[in-house]
Every structure is written in structure tokens, then in C-alpha cells.
């Protein structure tokens, strides 16, 4: 198992190299450069050339690529040419925001998906099962941004229960330490941050969590139904184990293994989903940072954001696989 982790970790830089190359080339392929977008703002004649030289845009694309990779190897993500800020510190600020949102979405997805799945799987073929399956189809066929906008219309504009934009009200004074609100709330004793944050995170988390819960619901349902048919569940019933105990101790434990993988894969997908939710809800995470940077042709920021998201995605999948191996005795303790 140690060897497996090692092998997977070796492939991480390879994956990242491909992601970096792809992002680099894709950005260059977009029409219009950062300089052109600034366009008329240059008043002094020499300033434009100065900036082009500073950014290295006068060099050939392959030279730029070489420099980019060289910096990447030294973990130098460069600077934003718009704000001059260090991309690493921008990532440091925005990544926790996204992780926070993704975890909140995961909680929503897990509760909604597994809850609906268990209910439907325990009583297959009933009216409740039919209703829940219809709901799940609706949920996973909804476009995320559309669902987000509907939530804004209903809960923000009509009911006024939740704020629509941002992560915390602008009135709140928050000096970040880790930039995870809940962790900082404990470190700084700022428990007044929790409720406003929850209000802000609810709608984006519902958008991402509910739209992804449909898949989880179906898998949980099928898992429960299939497991209930297995020989070892028949054995459990033949032992005289009461129905609820068969369900929770035997069926659920075995279904949980399958669900765990799905949750892990979905968590990775949620990082992607967060990009959309962040844009719709004006949520200041790494997704929105990257999208903004692409629109502004702020190459260094866009590249840095994409690479960090990719690295995170790979690491989460690795963690999921490992946790699965640990949870399933057949994988944890190989053959005889």
C-alpha cells in the first residue's frame, strides 16, 4: 500500500505538467492579450513597451513557456500584472474560501443524497421511492447556474432570507489568520462571524450540493437494493437478525464503501462546480479569481489558479482511493 501511494505521488508532477502546459497554451490561444485589453490606458509612450518587456511578452511563445515552467518548478507562480500582487498569496487567500464552500456543499450533498437514497432503497417500488427518484432526476438534470439564479430569486428577492453576494457582510470586520472562517472563529474567539458566514454560504452550498446529490441518491438506492439481494444478507436474515439491524449493520456498512468513492470523486467535481457558484453568488474563491483572470488575460493568475485547482483535485482523488482501501478489509488486508 505504501508503494501505491508512492507511485501515485510520482504521477502528481506529471499530471501538473500537462495541466500547466494546457493552461499556458489555451490562454495564449485566446484572442487579445492583456496589453491590448488595457489599450488606451497607456498615456506615456515608453510605458507600454516597458510593461511588455517586464511581463516577458516580447519573447517568443516557447521562451515564455520555458520561463513559466522554470518558475513553476521553483514554486513561483509569478505576479498579477493588474494588481502586482503575488499569485501565491492570492491563492492562499482564495483557496480556503473555495474549500470551505466545497465542504459545505459536500455536507449538503451527503445528507440529501444518502438520506434520499436510503429511504428509496429501503422501500423500493413504493410511492416514496418513485417520488424520490423523480426528484433525483430533476436535481441532476438542472443546470447549476440556473438553479443558483432560481435560489437567488426565491430566497433573496422574494423571501429575503439570505444575502445574495459575497462571503461575509461588508460591515463585518474580519482580519483573517487561516482564512477559514470557522477555524478563525475558534482561534480568534470571533463567534460572531459564524452566523453571517452561514447565511452567505447557504445558497451557494445548496446550489452545488443539491444538484450533485441526485447521483449520490441513485447510487445509494441501487447499492441498498443490490446489497439486500446478496447471499450474505440472506445469511444475516437466516441468523434471525432483526430487520432494522440487518439494514443498518449489514446493508449500510457494505453500501457505505461504494458511496465513499462517489463522495470523493464528487468532492473533486465540486471544486469545478464551485467556480460557477462563486461567479453566480459573487463568492470570492479561487474559481472566481481564475475566471476573472482569464477574462482579463492576467496570465500568471489564471495559470496559478488552474494549476492549484488541478493539484487539489488530484490529491483529493488520491485521498479517496486511500480511504477506500483502508475502509474495505478486502483491500486493506490483501489475500491470504
Amino acid at each position: 500500500m505504501g508503494g501505491e501511494v508512492f507511485r501515485r505521488l510520482i504521477f502528481l508532477p506529471v499530471t501538473l505538467f500537462f495541466v500547466a502546459t494546457l493552461v499556458f497554451l489555451a490562454l495564449r490561444a485566446l484572442p487579445g492579450s492583456s496589453i491590448e485589453l488595457l489599450g488606451s490606458q497607456f498615456t506615456t509612450a515608453g510605458l507600454k513597451e516597458q510593461l511588455i518587456a517586464d511581463l516577458g511578452l516580447d519573447k517568443s511563445i516557447w521562451e515564455q513557456y520555458g520561463i513559466f515552467l522554470g518558475e513553476l518548478v521553483r514554486f513561483d507562480l509569478g505576479r498579477s500584472f493588474l494588481t502586482g500582487k503575488d499569485v501565491s498569496s492570492m491563492v492562499g487567500e482564495t483557496l480556503p474560501v473555495t474549500i470551505e464552500l466545497a465542504v459545505a456543499s459536500l455536507v449538503v450533498m451527503t445528507i440529501a443524497g444518502i438520506g434520499m437514497g436510503l429511504l428509496a432503497g429501503a422501500f423500493p417500488g413504493t410511492l416514496a421511492d418513485g417520488l424520490l427518484r423523480t426528484v433525483s432526476v430533476l436535481l441532476f438534470s438542472l443546470p447549476w447556474f440556473w438553479f443558483g439564479i432560481v435560489l437567488i430569486i426565491v430566497f433573496v428577492l422574494w423571501l429575503g432570507w439570505f444575502p445574495a453576494f459575497g462571503r461575509l457582510p461588508s460591515s463585518v470586520d474580519y482580519e483573517a489568520v487561516t482564512n477559514f472562517v470557522l477555524i478563525d472563529a475558534i482561534i480568534l474567539g470571533r463567534f460572531d462571524l459564524v452566523v453571517p458566514w452561514l447565511k452567505h454560504v447557504t445558497l451557494p452550498a445548496l446550489t452545488v450540493g443539491l444538484t450533485t446529490s441526485g447521483v449520490l441518491m441513485r447510487l445509494t438506492r441501487v447499492g441498498v437494493i443490490e446489497t439486500a439481494k446478496t447471499d450474505y444478507i440472506r445469511t444475516a436474515r437466516m441468523k434471525g437478525v432483526p430487520g432494522p439491524r440487518v439494514f443498518f449493520r449489514h446493508i449500510l456498512r457494505n453500501v457505505a464503501l461504494g458511496i465513499l468513492t462517489v463522495i470523493g470523486v464528487q468532492f473533486g467535481a465540486m471544486l469545478g462546480g464551485s467556480v460557477i457558484a462563486e461567479v453566480v453568488f459573487g463568492y470570492p474563491g479561487i474559481g472566481r479569481m481564475t475566471v476573472d483572470a482569464v477574462l482579463n488575460r492576467d496570465y500568471a493568475v489564471a495559470q496559478g489558479g488552474a494549476i492549484v485547482i488541478a493539484a487539489f483535485y488530484v490529491l483529493i482523488n488520491l485521498a479517496t482511493d486511500l480511504s477506500y482501501r483502508w475502509a474495505d478489509p478486502r483491500l486493506r488486508r490483501g489475500g491470504r
Binding site: T230, D231, R234, T235, A236, L257, D328, P329, R330
Partner: peptide, 13 residues
């Protein structure tokens, strides 16, 4: 009851 295929009839977990 003792079933035919003990590999399937015993809980793997």
C-alpha cells in the same frame, strides 16, 4: 442453514 457458496454467504466486511 449452511449455503453453497460460503464466499458469497459471509459478510465480506
Amino acid at each position: 442453514m449452511v449455503f453453497q457458496d460460503a464466499a458469497a454467504a459471509l459478510n465480506p466486511c
